[in-house]
């Protein structure tokens, strides 16, 4: 499966090291499910898996948010409108937005983890009447490092979505919560018996979040996390991204805690 050359339409700088690319999709009827990713190829440098952060109801745009953390992402975030990059995908499993309809939904994320969850949030908001309470809990490093800050502000203004944001380190003007994202869970309104949770962020953050949600009584089959492992092929052949008995690129990245069972708590898996 070869990367398809795609033209970059626009580049938006979200944070100091984080950029959102609007890319012309490989095909006209290109579509994806919330939570899926593509392999993006910076020609001559390399290929990396990047979650799709766009609207799943808009197949005309492939939107991906990238943080520069190494040579390939440095190259991908240095592109300009009109440049061409390679795209393979979409790959992987998705947030089960349909399966959890009818109950409360907690969306818990930290840092750049908001990007892979943005399509799920947009999907849920587009079908808002199918869910009871929907709550977004977001943790960031500091007030200046809130991803999609304008959109967060817009979501906070909605009456059908509770948005709580906390930062690890406040500043002189920040009047919101300071502390870890798990501290927001007790402030959310949800019925554990009918609640599903989507969790995405650094693995340590996800571990503590899932522990707290389990303590609150949410069962493992309704707890979903987006896992991250070193990926190469993206189609479940090479084995680089093996996580327990799953390949994260194929059966993941979205896995339920029931699927992951002990693997999530086992070191070096």
């Amino acid at each position: 499966m070869h990367p398809i050359p795609c033209r970059v339409r626009s580049v938006v700088r979200e944070l100091e090291d984080t950029f959102t690319l609007d890319i012309e999709p490989p095909e006209n009827d290109w579509g994806f499910a919330p939570g899926q990713f593509t392999m993006l190829y910076a020609f001559g440098v390399g290929e990396v898996p990047i979650s799709i952060s766009g609207d799943p109801n808009d197949p005309s745009r492939l939107v991906q948010t990238i943080r520069a953390v190494g040579p390939v992402t440095d190259a991908l975030t240095a592109v300009s409108p009109g440049d061409t990059i390679g795209v393979r995908g979409p790959f992987g499993s998705s947030w089960p937005t349909k399966a959890v309809e009818g109950g409360d939904l907690l969306i818990i994320t930290g840092g750049i983890g908001l990007a892979p969850l943005r399509p799920a949030i947009l999907e849920v908001l587009a079908n808002r009447d199918r869910y009871d309470n929907v709550t977004l809990l977001y943790g960031a490093r500091s007030p200046g490092e809130l991803l999609f800050a304008d959109e967060l502000q817009e979501w906070r203004g909605r009456f059908d979505l509770d948005v709580l944001i906390t930062v690890d380190h406040g500043d002189r003007v920040w009047r919101g919560p300071v502390g870890v994202v798990t501290s927001l869970i007790s402030r959310a309104s949800f019925d554990p018996e009918s609640t599903a949770a989507f969790v995405c962020g650094p693995e340590i953050m996800m571990r503590f979040t899932i522990q707290e949600l389990q303590r609150k009584g949410i069962t493992d089959d309704r707890l979903f996390a987006s896992m991250e492992r070193n990926m190469k092929c993206g189609i479940g052949l090479c084995g680089h991204c093996q996580f327990g008995r799953y390949f994260v690129c194929k059966e993941g990245p979205i896995l339920s805690c029931a699927q992951m069972s002990g693997a999530f708590w086992t070191r070096e898996v």
């Binding site: 930290g110 798990t182 650094p202 503590f208």
Partner: peptide, 14 residues
């Protein structure tokens, strides 16, 4: 919680 804050998990891994 403070230990997790000290880990600075949202910083850029380089």
């Amino acid at each position: 919680s403070i230990r997790i804050q000290l880990l600075d998990v949202y910083s850029t891994p380089r």
